[in-house]
Design a protein around this nucleic acid. Structure first.
Lengths: 346, 346
DNA sequence: ATGAAAGCGCTAACAC
DNA sequence: GTGTTAGCGCTTTCAT
């Protein structure tokens, strides 16, 4: 060690026991809220704990078989506000309990999610919140086998036997597309999301259904690949604009893509929404920062985080949860980036 | 428990010991990289561990006096990209080691930072990264007393005896102000940051110094209070614009404030940068998303996170670190929100 | 209602 | 170089 050796050991329940004159197992009971403790004893113990500024050692607690009070949160990446907002919701809700967050990002080692899951489980997390895009059922199986509490966020397990919370991606996309149609657009470009993602698939489906429900021919040229990021949206929009007959509106699978679209459109010398409309999905906080303010489908990310926590805590408390899905509603937020097409065409 | 009771206990070093035919302390040594282990033995152990899919139990590890491989990260809040970017950097760098992040947000209980610090320390974090704005030295003292490794991020302890990483706030603000002056501005409004924050104070100082160095009278009317957030910037700008002689340029203490300024200016019917220039600080990813793209002082947030991790890990490794500060350079990023004043006045 | 005692899985002296 | 033995701080039977 460095300078002085006087690391003042933190007080343990043993110290509390001495101070309050009871056995240390009684202290443990009093502290952990066990019901059969005389209330006078409990008071005495709590008092002593307070005076000693006692802080429980979570490691010991969970080693001994109790709760660790840690929730493992596995996310792909931190560079994305989409994730930040979800985490924000998780954090908010968790703050009400005394759970803490252990944060894992998979970007560290691509595809090693299962390893992370194993670590989290083995490191004593009481439950897991998974925001991992591409779910491989390998570790989901392991989780199930151990009856380990976890909740899937914004992702469905195809076998649907997980607790999960998602938003109405398809309906949201439908509503958005319909809005564009009602504005008079007949040529609506679509920037798709990351392949394989449930949300991406659903949003595309919503777009397609809306089109066909309104008797609009689906032009496959109008669907171009994006990646849920600014750059992808930018590139996709360039393609769209260079089409022989460019769309009069672009529906981007998420706001990030939409931001890229805005950029590309501006560079092309076109004006939003006069020359072309842009619509996003997510309603990130940036959406009202860009100019023009982005009309977009609000996905309740913060609330999804909250909801997932609620489900998880419930599942930890009462392990025999039946698997269910919470579906939160999306909502079209009309701002300034959409308008009727300049030249109405049918 | 719920359905089946067959929770398959995770293998322990004891299982590895049996499988590889050595004592379990040897296993511990082999696994934790102790050097005096015959390499054939080590290989045998590692092999067995692999086959068993062994995952170490961190709780036990740290309880027994080893490392927990957890770094506690204390942040005020998650709703802010400024924080997100720092965390991003932390995460990036930490990914190279096998440390994990325990994330604490103080917004849960205002002013209870010390309690959090105590919890983190007591829960076996190997080190702390503190991004807490208003540092109360109360827990810093405790940390010092215990020789507990920690690094301050974007915050200085007035007594300067902590490891810390900050950016050149004052110089950055100076450069920015000077840029505005060189553009021809003589009436430069300043939206201040959150009171008490080191960065806020330094930026204001940089602004003032630049002004006086260029012989420009400091008009106290031009310095209006902000709070580092959009709303604060918005309100501050309204005040600035309603001045008898409004400034021709506004330097906001951070990008968030600048975004608010842009909004207010737009609502006022003015154009950026033709009618008035806006300059920010931080260079959040949003800065190039807004329109016009924000000219701002780049603060290397991601790198600050990285650097803090590097320092912390070093400090954990070699506890006898002398206290030092790493100062990372800011850089003026010229985009589209600044231009010479419409009417040159002296 | 409370005390005693046995570990949880692991590291770190201490022996040999 | 490797085995033996204590605990780390706590929860949880099992007694009483």
């Amino acid at each position: 060690m460095s300078r002085d050796e006087k690391k003042p050991k933190a007080p343990t329940i043993f110290d509390i026991a001495r101070k309050s004159g009871v056995s240390y197992s009684t202290v443990s009971r009093a502290l952990s809220g066990y019901e059969f403790v005389k209330s006078s004893t409990r008071e005495k113990v709590l008092q002593a704990a307070r005076e000693l500024e006692y802080v429980p050692n979570q490691q010991a607690r969970s080693l001994a078989g109790g709760r660790s009070n840690m929730i493992g949160v596995l996310v792909p990446d931190l560079s994305n506000s989409y994730i930040s907002e979800i985490i924000h919701g998780i954090d908010d809700e968790l703050a009400k309990s005394d759970y803490n967050i252990i944060l894992y990002t998979t970007h560290r080692h691509q595809g090693k999610e299962s390893e992370y899951v194993a670590t989290m489980v083995n490191s004593g997390a009481d439950g897991l919140l998974l925001v991992v895009p591409l779910i491989s059922s390998s570790y989901l199986d392991a989780l199930h086998q151990q009856d380990f509490p976890y909740v899937l966020l914004d992702q469905m397990n195809e076998r649907k036997q997980s607790l999960s919370v998602i938003a109405t991606n398809r309906a949201g996309a439908y509503e958005a597309t319909q809005y564009l149609i009602e504005l008079g657009h007949r040529h609506i470009g679509f920037i798709s999301g990351l392949e394989g993602l449930n949300s991406a698939t659903e949003r595309l489906a919503g777009y397609k259904t809306a089109l066909s429900d309104h008797g609009i021919h689906l032009d496959s040229e109008y669907i171009v690949g994006g990646d849920f990021r600014v750059q992808g949206g930018y590139l996709a929009t360039q393609k769209l604009l260079s089409l022989q007959k460019p769309p009069t509106a672009i529906f981007a699978s998420n706001d990030m893509s939409a931001f890229g679209a805005i950029e590309a459109i501006r560079q092309h010398g076109l004006h939003i929404p006069d020359d072309i409309s842009v619509l996003g999905f997510d309603d990130l906080s940036q959406a009202s920062l860009v100019y023009p303010k982005l009309t977009t489908v609000h996905q309740p990310l913060v609330e999804m985080g909250r909801e997932a926590v609620i489900m998880l805590l419930e599942c930890i408390e009462y392990p025999a949860q039946e698997m269910r899905q919470t579906i939160l509603p999306t909502k079209l937020i009309i701002r300034d980036s959409c308008a009727p097409p300049a030249i109405m065409m049918t």
